[in-house]
Design a protein around this nucleic acid. Sequence first.
RNA 1: CGGGGCGUGGCGCAGCCUGGUAGCGCGCGUGUUUUGGGUACACGAGGCCGCCGGUUCGAGUCCGGCCGCCCCGACCA
Length: 448
Amino acid sequence: MRLSRGFLPTLKENPAEAQIASHRLMLRAGLIRQTAAGIYAWLPAGLRVLRNIAQIVREEQDAIGAQEVLMPTLQPAELWRRSGRYEAYGPEMLRLTDRHERDLLYGPTNEEMITDLFGQSVRSYRELPQVLYQIHWKFRDEVRPRFGVMRGREFLMKDAYSFDTDPEAAVATYRRMLLAYLRTFQRLGVAAIPMVADAGPIGGNHSHEFIILAPTGESGVFYDGGLEEQDWLSSEIDLADREALAGFFTRVTSLYAATDEKHDEAAWAEVPADRRREGRGIEVGHIFYFGTKYTESMGISVSGADGAPFHPEMGSYGIGVSRLAGAIIEASHDEAGIIWPDAVAPYKAAILNLKPGDAGCDALCERLYGASPDALLLDDRSERAGVKFNDADLMGHPWQVIVGPRGAAAGRVELKRRATGERVELSPEEALERIGLPAVGGPGGHAA
RNA sequence: CGGGGCGUGGCGCAGCCUGGUAGCGCGCGUGUUUUGGGUACACGAGGCCGCCGGUUCGAGUCCGGCCGCCCCGACCA
């Protein structure tokens, strides 16, 4: 995208309503704009971030055999009356009425709907297991929305639901999902630590929260540094092998991790001192296994091997996609602005043309930009260099390709890594290669 | 939902106490200048002062009501 043509409204001053870093930076970098309390519009760059996050989440869900669906945002109250939650859910649920006086609600979650959909179609244990997910907007009418997109009322969430024949199979599904989450967060470039959460109606330790470490986090966290060192992307775990899954689960859960509410001083004392990590964190995911709660209350059953009907075992698994956009910034920014992890950045790099109008600069910038116009942001505005540097730092592109008259004349550009501030001078081809983009095509070779 | 605060050009704010022609900085437009870290000058555009009602000769300013937004707490993907 050419910045001169893009809808990327950056703000020089801090909006009065934004208190925390991510909220401030998202507004200033032109990612979002507020429409009402806790409700935001996503501008082009923000939407790209959201999509990048969602795509990684999607790929990792698919990798464990989950299938994507898309359910409505509006649900009939009837569905929730069946599970008993229409009355149980508080004012956080946005209730509305259509022209025929039928009660509807804007979904705060989808257990009822998915369970109903499942029940309509699945008849036999032979069709199990099933894991279905969607990435969709939800609404919870929070009393007090805050922290921008991290605590909004409307939010984008990946929610998955699993159906299994028995508790053992359900636990295996749970463990696969845990692995998928670890891989997802690792790919997103953030440290998200799984912490034991409230066990729920089934008991046991099959409920985990995933917490991103950030100084402004809402809860205090304590964990074993060993959890940071794991490489889940390259560890081969046979998803069909329950023994292997159990081993993996033990590997994760044997390392201490807890939020302040569940912190256990005795267990903490057993963690080697040099591996004790203490800080604050933001919850970005939650997985839990809850058995037959909904299949039972909603009267959903399938035939077992013996011909007798039974209620499938369920779990549900959420990731706050829009919250992650904010949480990642909380975990990765500095005084100048956002520092995007490569995987979620709206643009891989910004090309800063320090002197538009200079034939050498223009030609070199166009050549670089032409290599991947979609992945790159070309700052071709007739602004002063300082403005471009500041905006690039603010928007947090992982790389900046700085093209000035002197360098252009020599066929050299300066490549700056946002995260480290490191700068190197090299050829345009080398710069693109470092960024991980295909080389410049077409005639010309080196710049004149 | 308890407590506190704020609504004035796009953004950040002053003006309100003590009523009398709506201001400042940034941004925006035009021109000149400048050209490696938010440059300088000149000219210019842009405002139902959140909304409704009241007091008054006169309301951004005083009074009442309403709406919206933010912060602290309780609650939460």
